[in-house]
Design a protein around this nucleic acid. Structure first.
Lengths: 215, 215
DNA sequence: ACCGTTGGAGAGTAGCACTATCTATGTTGG
DNA sequence: CCAACATAGATAGTGCTACTCTCCAACGGT
């Protein structure tokens, strides 16, 4: 199919698709002539993944490019490929201020991972985006005077562990290596709003149970 | 304290504080004269909350204003105040396309809430931001061909339920009504990155367990 | 009296995700 | 064969957001 059809089938304007091509999010089509290129189903699929990451996952375009380049990097073994693709998926990438609060939070986070026995994350992850995100959140909680000791965090970690097991089961269900990696990225990002919105709904439910008027 | 000291103690430039004042995120100080105003600890605390919501929670300024106006609205009962403050906390507020996918996803979401017995959310929440967020995420998963039936979502809902119980316990631990509301907002937002980053770390751990090289 | 500070207001800026316009080709229906 | 339309590629422009800068007249501590 050509650009116009790709645009129509994906619901994304040709201008935007050209932009993604320029930015290297979408690989160029098979050139037919100087002014013609042919796109196929993988392009369509990739386009949908890009939209999922940018619109649902709210990832900046630069991050999406990085993630996708890892997805496509076949020079790594499967575990590293999944790892480095998901590695590049931070939720908030502002440079951290790195004050005293952050250092205290770092100690708490280390203690938490130790207690959980998450040695892999602990060893490899001191610099991982996910780890830094955790530290920054703990520091922010502390600055506002809320408790964020390991014992307060454990229930969240337990819930996270259950969710991760479910995630990996889904990912491992795919046989093809490519599919697995895309699944890892897509599910990590797309189940985030699922998890967060369900938490909000559960909070409303629980709040109603505790404080609600007996209607 | 005056503007300069408020700025120094919070680590936020006077220009930005003035911007927050203009935008109505921070209530004006007690006027001493035409060109002098006095700020106090609640102002400092509010400022830290604003930063937590914008920087850690990545909420747009307009959303923060709305949330805070609900936090300060004393014309409501406690449950409604918490509810409406948290209500205004969506994670992604782009207008939904509302296609066929969304309608299917809506049915799935309704069935899920029914199965969970979350009647309150179900009744009050068909239009809630959290509910729409859930629907959009389910639709996005489906468009990429990933399973998102109630049985796939249940593990996430169960984890969300556990987390929500923990959240409400923390919130209920505060005696003062004001404190409770601020805690509800702060914890809902600030524990989000905690939960998400722990999930990433748990995924890395689980992925290593399944695919990792036996080092 | 003097000089730095304050509140207030408007204009300016940086970054991001597109979007519009232009040009030199190419393709295609009649 | 040719006119009308589509395409790749490049450049510039737009709209939005979250600040940031610049002025100004009026204070106020020393």
């Amino acid at each position: 199919m050509r650009l116009a059809e790709l645009s129509e089938r994906s619901g994304i304007s040709t201008a935007t698709i050209k932009y993604y091509l320029r930015e290297g999010l979408l690989p160029p089509g098979r050139r037919i002539s100087t002014t013609q290129a042919e796109y196929d189903d993988p392009h369509l699929r990739r386009l949908r993944l890009i939209r999922a990451l940018t619109q649902v996952g709210r990832l900046p375009v630069a991050t999406v490019r990085e993630v996708l380049s890892n997805v496509d990097d076949s020079s790594l073994d499967q575990h590293s490929r999944i790892g480095s693709a998901v590695w590049a998926l931070p939720h908030g990438s502002q440079p951290a201020p790195e004050g005293q609060d952050e250092q205290d939070a770092d100690l708490t986070a280390q203690a938490l991972l130790e207690e959980l026995g998450w040695g892999y994350s602990h060893a490899a992850g001191s610099a991982s985006p996910a780890y830094r995100m955790l530290v920054r959140a703990i520091a922010a909680l502390r600055r506002l005077g809320y408790p964020a000791a390991t014992e307060n965090l454990l229930p969240y970690a337990r819930a996270a562990g259950q969710v991760a097991t479910t995630d990996l089961e889904l990912i491992a269900g795919y046989d093809d290596a490519e599919e697995q990696i895309e699944a890892a990225v897509a599910c990590t990002v797309l189940y985030e709003p699922v998890l967060l919105s369900l938490r909000r709904l559960a909070e409303a439910e629980e709040s109603n149970r505790r404080f609600g008027t007996k209607s």
